[in-house]
Simulated scan of single mutants.
Amino acid sequence: MTRPARWAIVLAAGVALLAVGAIAFSIGRLSTLGDPTPTDASVEAGFARDMQVHHHQGVELAMIVRDATDDPDVRLLAYDIATTQAQQAGQMYGWLAEWGLPQFGSEPSMAWMTGPAEGGGGHDGHGAGVGEADASGHAPGEPMPGLATPAQVEELRSLDGVEAERRFLELMIAHHAGAVEMAEAALDRSDYPVVVSLAESIVSSQQSEIALMEDMLAERS
């Protein structure tokens, strides 16, 4: 595929993702109407902020590999991941807008995740103090589970063909596992309807995709 053709595909995909995000933003705002408003330091707000960051990197990794391979199965998987995670990120952006909360809060990342799991009802809960890890071993301000490092992202950018496919699958399996961990932490700490619904969807869909990607990786070993 020529470079101009690749850029045309990337541009078209980017426009599609922006449209998906805009629609999801509107849905996210409407979906929270009638429910109590979470606070800035709540589990719900922390989850919405951190999972947006996590999903944005998922979209980035997916779009990198879509431009690095001609394999139809990998390209289809990457497109599905990018569109799904862009849509979900748009939803969470919409939640925060509807709640009147900033997209970037005063709490460090993962503060909501490191507090005690009480089986839901964490609307006003705070996480552990900065630098204090909970029983899961996470501490507020540390990188979210499963995030690729900047060096790993740049490594993926440098590859193409089967090498890019393998590295993408390795990174995305870890990325999905981290998202599942975050979603399960939200389910343990919140009973807010839209948060529970999205977290359950993330756990189900990404566990299924992990199994698929493990098979795809084995085929390329």
Score class of each variant (00 low, 15 high):
residue 71 D to A: 11
residue 91 Q to Y: 01
residue 74 V to F: 03
residue 74 V to R: 05
residue 127 G to Q: 04
residue 55 H to T: 10
residue 116 P to R: 12
residue 108 P to K: 09
residue 116 P to E: 13
residue 99 W to E: 14
residue 105 G to T: 06
residue 122 G to M: 06
residue 110 M to Y: 12
residue 105 G to Q: 01
residue 84 T to H: 06
residue 64 I to W: 03
residue 65 V to I: 10
residue 70 D to V: 12
residue 130 V to T: 11
residue 101 L to A: 08
residue 113 M to W: 13
residue 63 M to Y: 02
residue 83 T to R: 10
residue 55 H to A: 11
residue 95 W to M: 04
residue 61 L to N: 05
residue 129 G to A: 15
residue 70 D to G: 09
residue 93 Y to F: 03
residue 132 E to N: 14
residue 78 A to I: 07
residue 66 R to N: 09
residue 54 H to W: 03
residue 94 G to R: 03
residue 60 E to W: 01
residue 62 A to D: 02
residue 69 T to M: 08
residue 45 A to F: 01
residue 117 A to N: 09
residue 93 Y to A: 10
residue 73 D to F: 02
residue 46 G to Q: 11
residue 98 E to F: 06
residue 102 P to A: 05
residue 61 L to P: 01
residue 81 I to T: 05
residue 82 A to V: 02
residue 115 G to Y: 02
residue 63 M to W: 03
residue 45 A to M: 08
residue 78 A to K: 02
residue 126 H to D: 05
residue 111 A to S: 14
residue 103 Q to H: 04
residue 129 G to E: 14
residue 83 T to F: 00
residue 87 Q to V: 04
residue 75 R to W: 04
residue 104 F to G: 00
residue 79 Y to S: 04
residue 118 E to D: 11
residue 47 F to S: 09
residue 74 V to M: 11
residue 45 A to D: 05
residue 121 G to R: 08
residue 61 L to T: 00
residue 98 E to N: 15
residue 55 H to I: 10
residue 94 G to E: 03
residue 133 A to N: 13
residue 61 L to W: 01
residue 66 R to I: 01
residue 131 G to S: 13
residue 120 G to P: 09
residue 91 Q to D: 05
residue 101 L to C: 07
residue 69 T to S: 14
residue 124 D to R: 14
residue 113 M to C: 10
residue 125 G to Q: 12
residue 76 L to D: 08
residue 124 D to N: 14
residue 47 F to Y: 15
residue 63 M to A: 03
residue 46 G to S: 13
residue 65 V to Q: 10
residue 43 V to R: 07
residue 113 M to L: 15
residue 68 A to R: 15
residue 133 A to P: 06
residue 91 Q to C: 01
residue 117 A to F: 10
residue 46 G to K: 11
